[in-house]
């Protein structure tokens, strides 16, 4: 049994895409618990089924079989209005931002508030608050095409947080950003997690990103969950071959120093192992 703090519970969750000629098994009997307040990472290669799995949480993809409980509700049994209510509790941020280009930054952030039927005064105050939180107050009346990638993602995060969701889904949100901006955005997500207690489920194919921000990491390979553990466990003692390869790429990356030092701060107990990794990276 999952404990009371379990906010997302996959139980044999399976997704099969039926195409004209063949069937694609995208997620195969995924069983996983995400606890309230944690930053949960899903890593894996392209095509492993990560996006499909995360999209099950807000029902952008229906399950073919199995069960998924989110915030205490069996998502497979929700009608349209219950689903709408659930989606107001779950924000989502995307790799290519998916901002509404025809709407200003302020209107983008306001959109989910309109859907949730907030009054105009409350919407205005909330938009101002969010713009301030992501440091974009000066861009309120600008249109998305005028922003840099990092700025777009800040707006994406502000928009996803508008209705005070309990869960934030982040699908490759730093994959289109350069290393410096990646760190900025990850720090912003950390702040969201710490200050608002928002549970974050994030997908990445970059191990260094996962190790920088995630408390727990699930590794997916070929539609299946192949390894699961705390970030420190995964990083220092990977078991599955896919995980091993991921850890290796992380230590070879250009942002790895920052991440390794971050790991030391977060896991002082693992300092010697991390130090070894650091030496390995720099060949000393």
């Amino acid at each position: 049994m999952a404990n009371e703090e379990t906010i997302i519970q996959f139980r044999g969750a399976t997704k099969v895409y039926k195409l004209r000629k063949k069937e694609v098994l995208a997620v195969d009997k995924l069983t996983l618990d995400v606890e309230k307040g944690e930053v949960f990472g899903i890593i894996g290669y392209s095509g492993a089924g990560k996006s499909t799995a995360i999209r099950m949480i807000n029902q952008l993809e229906a399950l073919t079989s199995g069960k998924l409980t989110v915030l205490g509700q069996d998502v497979g049994r929700l009608n349209e209005s219950q689903l709408k209510a659930l989606r107001a509790e779950i924000g989502m941020v995307f790799q290519l931002f998916n901002l509404f280009n025809a709407k200003t930054i302020a209107k983008n952030i306001e959109f989910p508030l309109k859907l949730a039927k907030w009054t105009p005064e409350k919407r205005k105050a909330r938009v101002a608050e969010l713009l301030d939180f992501v440091g974009m107050s000066d861009k309120a009346n600008v249109y998305p095409p005028e922003l840099s990638g990092g700025q777009k993602q800040r707006v994406g995060i502000a928009r996803a947080l508008a209705t005070n969701p309990k869960i934030l889904l982040a699908d490759e949100v730093t994959s289109a950003l350069d290393p410096e901006t990646t760190i900025d955005v990850l720090n912003l997500l950390k702040k969201v997690n710490k200050e608002f207690g928002v549970t974050i489920v994030m997908i990445t194919h970059a191990m260094n990103v996962a190790s920088y921000i995630c408390d727990k990491i699930a590794v997916m390979d070929d539609a299946k969950l192949v390894e699961f553990g705390t970030a420190a466990e995964i990083f220092t003692a990977p078991k599955h071959p896919t995980t091993v390869r991921f850890v290796k790429t992380a230590t070879e990356s250009d942002v790895s120093d920052k991440i390794l030092s971050e790991l030391v701060v977060r896991h002082p107990d693992l300092a010697p192992e991390i130090d070894d990794l650091f030496k390995e990276v720099h060949n000393v």
Partner: peptide, 10 residues
Amino acid sequence: GIIEAARSMG
């Protein structure tokens, strides 16, 4: 992706 964003907001 824009439609997906809108749908994800309910």
